[in-house]
Design a protein around this nucleic acid. Structure first.
Lengths: 123, 123
DNA sequence: GTCAAACTACGAGGGACTTCGTACAATGGG
DNA sequence: CCCATTGTACGAAGTCCCTCGTAGTTTGAC
């Protein structure tokens, strides 16, 4: 079909917009973390302690929904995303979050872990 | 006789339903705190460090909306509400939250304070 | 009894969110 | 070049959420 020309995409290998550190809002972070799917993603990223591909995180939703949740996390400033070949790597923005909201991420992760321990089979 | 007094046209002692400690879910708490109005309420309750009447918390919304937000906070397990005459007193459930999610409430409160300091005139 | 104060219930409007399906683009290997 | 893999865009359906106005209930004071 008609090849769509794109602006200056020749040298830019698909870049993604991230909020700057001081653009990250607490309400946005809390809202991003208040979804079970996204909290699960964040827990896996924290456990991995490295960049993880979207496809490596197993969620009981379709790929479209997966993309949506990763975008919410990125736009809230919780994760950083970069392309690597056909994969998209995800990493927690620990440094920014710890600088802005000291102890918050660790408290949420610990709380999620404790809650998961209390609810063995559920969620 | 009614064994379980409901909050709908009940009899003498108006009682309110609160979730038990182990019924409090992290996602619910995070969602409750992710709203600017409710975060504001929680900050005021934490600053007061005592029971505060709904009418004493000044919010730029109508009373109906105020009631709604207080109920969300109560049903999420963040606050405890009790009637006292015509007033309804509100207090943080610090003990329960600290037991379930150690450090979470303090981290959120500190983060909210830090963010408010970065944004002097409320957005 | 009457009245004001404080809060609630109900419903409505408008917007945001979660999920999905389908079709499409970018990358790297055979 | 062809194609499988990976993720995106777009729209749609259904649901939930925030806000409000109005009418009503409960309580305590006069």
């Amino acid at each position: 079909m008609t090849p769509v020309p794109r602006a200056s995409a020749a040298t830019s290998p698909r870049e993604l917009a991230h909020p700057a550190r001081d653009e990250i809002r607490l309400e946005g972070v809390l809202h991003a973390l208040s979804d079970p799917m996204r909290l699960r993603v964040v827990r896996e990223l924290a456990a991995a302690d490295a960049e993880v591909a979207c496809s490596h995180v197993e969620l009981p939703v379709t790929k479209s929904t997966c993309t949506h949740h990763f975008r919410v996390l990125r736009e809230a400033g919780v994760i950083r995303q970069t392309y690597r070949g056909t994969a998209k790597m995800n990493g927690l923005r620990r440094d920014d979050l710890d600088a802005l909201f000291p102890g918050l991420l660790d408290a949420v992760l610990a709380a999620a872990g404790a809650q998961a321990a209390r609810r063995p089979t559920g969620s």
